[in-house]
Design a protein around this nucleic acid. Structure first.
Length: 436
RNA sequence: UCCUCGGUAGCUCAACGGUAGAGCAUUCGGCUGUUAACCGAAGGGUUGUAGGUUCGAAUCCUACCCGGGGAGCCA
C-alpha cells in the first residue's frame, strides 16, 4: 500500500495524513539521534524530521548522511508545527533514494554566498534555489496576466516572424543570420510592422515572443535576447494607446499581488511599492519632462533622449509609473505620426517604471498617410522598395492606428525588485555570455 | 566601443615587497528540535596568462585573457 503523492504547495490540505513527497534534498541539519532533511519538490520546501529511535537503523543512517540535491521520495505523516517555516513538517516513516549525489563530486551551489560569475556559469543548477524559483513563478504570472488582459478585450494573438529581411527601425543593431547559401536575414528586434498588417486584418492583435538586439550594452537593464509583448490596434490614436498601456500595467501588477504573495515574500519585495500602482498614472509631455529634469540638475537639453539617471529623476517623486509623450520626431523611429499642432513632435509615449527600473513600455500612433510615410522613409535613408508591402497598408483602406511594446524581463525585474534583469529569464543571453 | 573595479583552495574572502591564511564545502569524530545548526580534527594552492623590476613578487610595472559595475543605445 502506498501513500498518496502530494505537492509541498498543497501540504496544508493533508494535515495529519500519511503522504509521499518526491523531490530533492535542499539542505540537512542533524544532531546525533535526530536529523532534519529539507526537501524541495519544485512547488515548495518542507522540513522532514527523522528520529533514530523511531526508524530502522539503516534508513536513519542513510538519511543523516544524505548529500545536497540527492533525489528521493519520502513518506511520512504531515504535522502542523509552529517552529517550522511554512507551518508544517513531515515525520519520516520511509524513504526511497533515487540517486545519492556522491561526496567526491558534491553539488556545487552550497547554501552560502556565491559570486555572480560562478552562479551564471551554473545557471542550470542555480534555478533550483528558492529565490530563482520565486522569480520564475512571478514571470509566469506576468506572462499569463498579459495574455489574459489582451484576450479579455478581444485581441487576437498573431505571432510575427523571427527571421526578418531588414531592420524595422534602422537604428538598432541586428543579429545577422546566414539563411541557406546566399541570403542574409536578421533576428527580429520588433514585430511591429507585421503587427500593423495583422491589425488591418483582425482589428486588435498582439504578438508575444523573443526579440534580439545586438547592442553592446552592459547594464543591469539589458539582454541581447528578451521577450516582448506588442499590441496593435486599428482605429486608435495616442490616447487609446496610453489607456491600453496603463490598463495593462495596472492589471499585471494586480495579478502578481493577488497570486504571488508567497514569492514576493521570498524575494523580500516591499509590496507597498506595488500596491500604489493604480490608475491614473501621472502624464507629462516631453517638453515638461525636460523642464523638470533641468530643474533637478540634469544636463539634458531639448532634443536629447533621456538617460537612465534622467528616468530615475523623473519618477522619483511619484509612487507609480510615469507616462511621457510627444517626443521630438528626430529621436524617434520613422513611422511615428506627428503631432497635429507641432509637426516636430512625434505622437509616441514611454511608460517609465518607478524605483529606477526604467522604460518598460514604448509605443505610439503610427503614420497612416502614404505620402508622409514615404517622405519619412527617405529622410531616414531607408530603401522604399524594401517597404513595398508595408506601404500597401496605407494604400488599401488606411486608418489611424497604434500600439506599443512592453519588455517582459524589465517588468518582472520591477515586480521582483531584482537588482539585475538577468535573473528574470531562465537562461539570459547577454554581451559576452551565451552559456549555459 | 569607452570609463572604472576586480581575478589567491571547490565557493566567499584575508595576507606592509620578506614562511600563502580563515569561514563554508569535503572526510573523520561528537551532539534528540536544528533553522545558511553547532563543537573538535584532517586533507585541499603553479596566487588568470606571458614578460619585466628586485637579493626576494599574490603584492610594483607592461601586455593580453576573463569577469563585475557604469556610459552611450534601447524594452
Amino acid at each position: 500500500m502506498s501513500a498518496p503523492r502530494v505537492r509541498i504547495a498543497d501540504i496544508a490540505k493533508h494535515d495529519g495524513q500519511t503522504v509521499s513527497i518526491a523531490g530533492w534534498l535542499y539542505n540537512l541539519r542533524r544532531s546525533g539521534k535526530i536529523c532534519f532533511p529539507l526537501l524541495r519538490d519544485g512547488s515548495g520546501i518542507i522540513q522532514c524530521v527523522a528520529v533514530k529511535a523511531n526508524l530502522p537503523e539503516e534508513l536513519f543512517e542513510t538519511l543523516k548522511d544524505l548529500t545536497q540535491e540527492s533525489s528521493l521520495i519520502v513518506t511520512g505523516k504531515v504535522r502542523a508545527e509552529a517552529r517550522a517555516q511554512g507551518g508544517f513538517e513531515l515525520d519520516v516513516e520511509s524513504a526511497e533514494i533515487l540517486q545519492r549525489v556522491p561526496e567526491s563530486d558534491p553539488y556545487p551551489i552550497t547554501p552560502k554566498d556565491h559570486g555572480i560569475d560562478f552562479l551564471m556559469d551554473h545557471r542550470h543548477l542555480w534555478l533550483r534555489s528558492r529565490r530563482q524559483t520565486a522569480i520564475l513563478r512571478v514571470r509566469h504570472e506576468v506572462i499569463k496576466a498579459i495574455r489574459d488582459y489582451f484576450d479579455n478585450q478581444g485581441f487576437t494573438l498573431v505571432d510575427t516572424p523571427i527571421f526578418t529581411p531588414a531592420a524595422c527601425e534602422g537604428t538598432s543593431t541586428l543579429f545577422e543570420v546566414k539563411y541557406f547559401e546566399d541570403e542574409i536575414v536578421y533576428l527580429t528586434q520588433s514585430g511591429q510592422l507585421y503587427n500593423e498588417a495583422n491589425a488591418m486584418a483582425l482589428g486588435k492583435v498582439y504578438c508575444f515572443g523573443p526579440t534580439f538586439r545586438a547592442e553592446k550594452s552592459k547594464t543591469r537593464r539589458h539582454l541581447t535576447e528578451f521577450w516582448m509583448v506588442e499590441p496593435e490596434m486599428a482605429f486608435a490614436n495616442l490616447e487609446d494607446v496610453k489607456a491600453l498601456a496603463e490598463g495593462l500595467v495596472v492589471y499585471c501588477v494586480g495579478r502578481v499581488l493577488e497570486n504571488r504573495r508567497a514569492e514576493l515574500d521570498v524575494l523580500e519585495r516591499d509590496v507597498k511599492k506595488l500596491e500604489s500602482v493604480q490608475a491614473p498614472f501621472p502624464r507629462m509631455s516631453y517638453d515638461d519632462a525636460v523642464k523638470i529634469l533641468a530643474g533637478k540638475g540634469s544636463e539634458i537639453t531639448w532634443g536629447g533622449d533621456f538617460g537612465n539617471t534622467d528616468e530615475t529623476l523623473l519618477t522619483q517623486e511619484f509612487d507609480r509609473p510615469v507616462m511621457v509623450d510627444r517626443y521630438p520626431s528626430e529621436i524617434k523611429a520613422f513611422y511615428f505620426q506627428p503631432d497635429e499642432h507641432n509637426e516636430k513632435l512625434a505622437l509616441g509615449v514611454d511608460v517609465i517604471a518607478p524605483e529606477g527600473y526604467g522604460e518598460i513600455i514604448g509605443g505610439g500612433q503610427r503614420i497612416h498617410d502614404p505620402e508622409l510615410l514615404l517622405r519619412r522613409l527617405k529622410e531616414h535613408d531607408l530603401p522604399p522598395e524594401a517597404f513595398n508591402w508595408y506601404m500597401d497598408l496605407r494604400k488599401y483602406g488606411t486608418v489611424p492606428h497604434g500600439g506599443f511594446g512592453m519588455g517582459v524581463e524589465r517588468f518582472v525585474a520591477w515586480m521582483c525588485g531584482t537588482e539585475h534583469i538577468r535573473e528574470c529569464i531562465a537562461y539570459p543571453r547577454m554581451l559576452y555570455r551565451t552559456r549555459p
